[in-house]
Nucleic acid binder design. Structure first.
Lengths: 114, 114
DNA sequence: AAAAGAGTTGACTTTCAACTCAACATTTCT
DNA sequence: AGAAATGTTGAGTTGAAAGTCAACTCTTTT
């Protein structure tokens, strides 16, 4: 069973020795909100808020994002404005790619320009 | 200057010889809404509504979607649940891929399983 | 010309995500 | 123990997306 978003967040926050209030204040949300999130009383924050939180906690946002199924607005905008990109994702979806295959594509991506 | 969403929709709808009312009814929205959309009085519909409209009009949704920068929920869910996929898109974004490069990646995608 | 069909417009509504506020409980420090 | 810090909970707010509804006008058909 994978960790819930709340559990994951709590673990990271504790590892960084921050109180809910500190994290909340630096992130710009109410501290009681952090509490509810950590206890999974509310659904995870908006994607952009998650990114902010991760900046404060100084961790990459991908892991937490993936737990929520949400996509940050910068990413949405990237693919949203390209018909070929949307098509690409559609095809990838139909193939049900594994994480390894995505990574392999990532390497091919880098080779694209060489 | 690229076509607006409203212009593009209107062109397609007319090409298919449908009235606003017909399209609206089959799509499940109010006909006055179609009017406003076509005249760009309101922002484009939700991504999933665009997909529905395209089904009724019998055209692939990518072109219209790309005009809006929106992403259908099925696509969001696909990439949203995979950290590697998000990472991939991030990298692609940083590289500012062209449409052709996206298509090239699409071909590599198909070769992935062979 | 009158009726039907098609399109436009302003005002309003509904729904929901994403929180905040205030009060209370629990834990930790001195 | 008392105070300070930290965490939890229920209720309420806010803003924006995504439309609807009713009334009107313009166009076409008979």
């Amino acid at each position: 069973m994978p960790k819930t978003f709340g559990q994951a967040l709590r673990d990271i926050r504790r590892a960084k020795n921050l109180s809910q209030r500190e994290l909340a204040q630096k992130t710009g949300v109410d501290f009681s909100y952090i509490s509810k999130i950590e206890n999974d009383r509310l659904p995870p924050p908006a994607a952009d808020t998650i990114v902010k939180i991760c900046e404060i906690l100084d961790v990459p946002p991908e892991q937490l994002l993936a737990l929520t199924g949400k996509v940050p607005s910068e990413v949405t905008e990237t693919i949203g404005t390209s018909a070929a990109a949307i098509q690409f994702i559609r095809d990838a979806q139909a193939m049900k790619l594994t994480e390894e295959e995505w990574q392999r594509l990532g390497r091919q991506l880098r080779r694209l320009r060489r």
